[in-house]
C-alpha cells in the first residue's frame, strides 16, 4: 500500500519538469545466441525508428501509436535499470523483445537461436561528438520453443 502511495504522489503533486535537462539517452540492443554460454558479437537495435514518417502517418499516430508508446515504456524501463536495477524492468524489456521476435512483424530470422540477451547503451554528447557506452547486460534468457508460440 505504501509502495502504491509512493507511485501515486508524483501524480497528485507533479513536478512538471519536462525536458529540464537532456540526459544521456539509453538504447536497447539484443543478441540471439545458440547456447547459454555463447558470447555475442552481433547486436541488433531493438525497434529502430523509421527513416521517415509522412504527415498522414503522423496524423494516424494521434489515434494509434501503440508500438511507439510501448517503445517509450521500454526506454523508461532502461532508465530505471540504469538508476536502480530491478527484476521487473529487466523482465519487461526481455518480454517485449521476445514478443517482437516471435511476432509476425519480426524481420530477424531466429534460425538456430535458442537464447536471447539484451544490453543497454547510453548515448550522450561529449563536446561536439556523440559517445556511447555499454552500461548493462541482461541475463541470458532461453527463447520459447518455436511450436509453443
Amino acid at each position: 500500500m505504501l509502495h502504491i502511495l509512493k507511485l501515486l504522489i508524483p501524480a497528485l503533486i507533479p513536478s512538471w519538469n519536462f525536458f529540464d535537462i537532456i540526459a544521456p539517452s539509453p538504447r536497447v540492443q539484443y543478441a540471439l545466441l545458440e547456447s547459454e554460454n555463447e558470447t555475442s558479437h552481433e547486436w541488433y537495435e531493438f525497434r529502430p525508428r523509421p527513416a521517415h514518417l509522412s504527415f498522414l502517418q503522423m496524423l494516424g499516430h494521434m489515434l494509434w501509436n501503440a508500438k511507439w508508446n510501448e517503445s517509450m515504456f521500454v526506454v523508461s524501463c532502461a532508465e530505471r535499470l540504469m538508476e536502480q536495477p530491478t527484476q521487473h524492468s529487466e523482465d519487461e524489456i526481455m518480454q517485449r523483445i521476445i514478443s517482437d521476435l516471435v511476432g509476425a512483424s519480426s524481420k530477424i530470422q531466429l534460425n538456430t537461436a535458442t537464447h536471447l540477451q539484451f544490453r543497454l547503451l547510453v548515448v550522450e554528447r561529449q563536446g561536439a561528438a556523440l559517445e556511447q557506452e555499454v552500461v548493462f547486460y541482461s541475463r541470458i534468457q532461453p527463447l520459447p520453443a518455436r511450436d509453443a508460440v
Binding site: F18, I21, I22, S25, M72
Partner: peptide
Amino acid sequence: SGWVKVVNKDWRNGHALRDVFLFSAYPASE
C-alpha cells in the same frame, strides 16, 4: 516547464533542443 528550461543555459542558447533531436529517444523518425 517553462521555468526549468529558461534557467538552463542550454535551453537559452538552443543546445538543449538540438540534443533532443540529435540523440534523445524522442524523435519519431530518423
